[in-house]
Nucleic acid binder design. Structure first.
Lengths: 212, 212
DNA sequence: AGAAAAAACTAACTATCGTTAGTTTGTCAC
DNA sequence: GTGACAAACTAACGATAGTTAGTTTTTTCT
């Protein structure tokens, strides 16, 4: 059996194609109903398969869930790592990058939030050492900002958490907001507005510049 | 044994006592594992009962969940309504009030987040017209602030959503943060720190005052 | 074309879910 | 005390979950 192919890969196997389709359907269902609320029969039906056929691609429900989570979280983590790697990454650029990433996969934030609410036992192994550097870099940026000293050292992590929640929460509350205010937050103009808003937020909170 | 009774109420029936205990256990379990992930057998075991005994107090799992949600969400909604009722409520006071509320019931934010992730179909009937006035009042405050015009009209709802997510998200991510950074966000000093942080955030974002 | 491997299928098992029926225990008014 | 009612119990049902075994179809390689 030919193993995973990289950049110059050959055409994907039939099995790899259906495996990807399974991941797509499972991601949507896990994001909407959580792990316990999602049934393998629903996943199979979404793909157009019978339940046992899933076992030709994944060893079980747990493994499928882990695969969905890993595939979904990977691009975000790599963006975070790149931001924290060299000292050149600015928070505003990170926010824009992450927003573009999530806009293309609006199920991902809900998937991650479900995982976090359930304790994050499946997410934590994936985080590895991608998170620590982000906090470190946030400290650097905050201290080098014009309004230096505005935030105490113990407040920086709270600021990072706050930014995380604002970014992710926007997507998770979109369905409720649609029914509550009759406005779809996931349209392209709405997402662009939110991205602008986040940019201003970062500018105010990290650089200490008041809005003009 | 004489139990603590509310201000002017008669003594609670034995049934009311166990009903309250059922609600307590169910709230904790629903908050941790969500609706689908919580089993009535676990609820009963947590109370020290057999599963069918739950049906002496609630007509089924759905009704129990609805009761938990209603009891949990009521104080928050009344705080929101009071904030929006007369024009005197300031955002900082609201944030402090809500933080005190949630600090006393740290399961509540996770319960609400689970509900929102699942579409909020059970939450929405409870919201009624408690939410609209909050947005309206936010507009008033933002426009009457010293840095008036700093936020455009279309950004005010985003600001309200952002504040909501920062407040609620703090509690939902606490368990993961504990394992990730080895720090418990739910201790009293940590919550007081977060409350101060939120106060500064509101001050900056609503009043337009830069941190000194 | 034909053999071998991959990937679909049918059928069914075990466990556990929410729920119901019927019974026993406990509590309180008279 | 004794009857009446509330609230616990035991036993079990039907439905559905994840999973396995065994079989048939489809693809792939020579």
């Amino acid at each position: 059996m030919v193993i995973a192919e990289s950049v110059l890969a050959s055409a994907p196997t039939r099995g790899e194609v259906t495996a990807a389709r399974i991941l797509d359907v499972a991601e949507a269902l896990f994001a909407r109903h959580g792990y316990e609320g999602t049934t393998l029969r629903d996943v199979a039906a979404g793909v157009g398969l019978r339940t046992p056929s899933l076992y030709n691609h994944f060893s079980g429900k747990d493994a499928l869930y882990a695969a969905v989570l890993e595939r979904g979280v990977a691009p975000v983590l790599s963006a975070l790592s790149e931001f924290a790697r060299d000292g050149s990454g600015d928070p505003e650029g990170l926010v824009v990058t992450v927003m573009e990433l999530l806009a293309g996969r609006p199920d991902l934030p809900r998937l991650i939030q479900h995982e976090i609410l359930s304790g994050g036992e499946c997410l934590m192994p994936l985080l590895g050492d991608s998170i620590g550097p982000v906090f470190a870099r946030a400290h650097e940026v905050a201290e080098a900002s014009p309004g230096a000293g505005a935030w105490s050292a113990e407040e920086i992590p709270l600021l990072v958490l706050a930014m995380y929640h604002v970014v992710v929460g926007y997507f998770t509350i979109a369905p409720l907001y649609a029914e509550l205010q009759g406005q779809d937050l996931l349209t392209q103009p709405a997402i662009e507005r939110q991205t602008r808003f986040l940019g201003e937020l970062v500018s105010i909170l990290f650089s200490g510049t008041t809005k003009e």
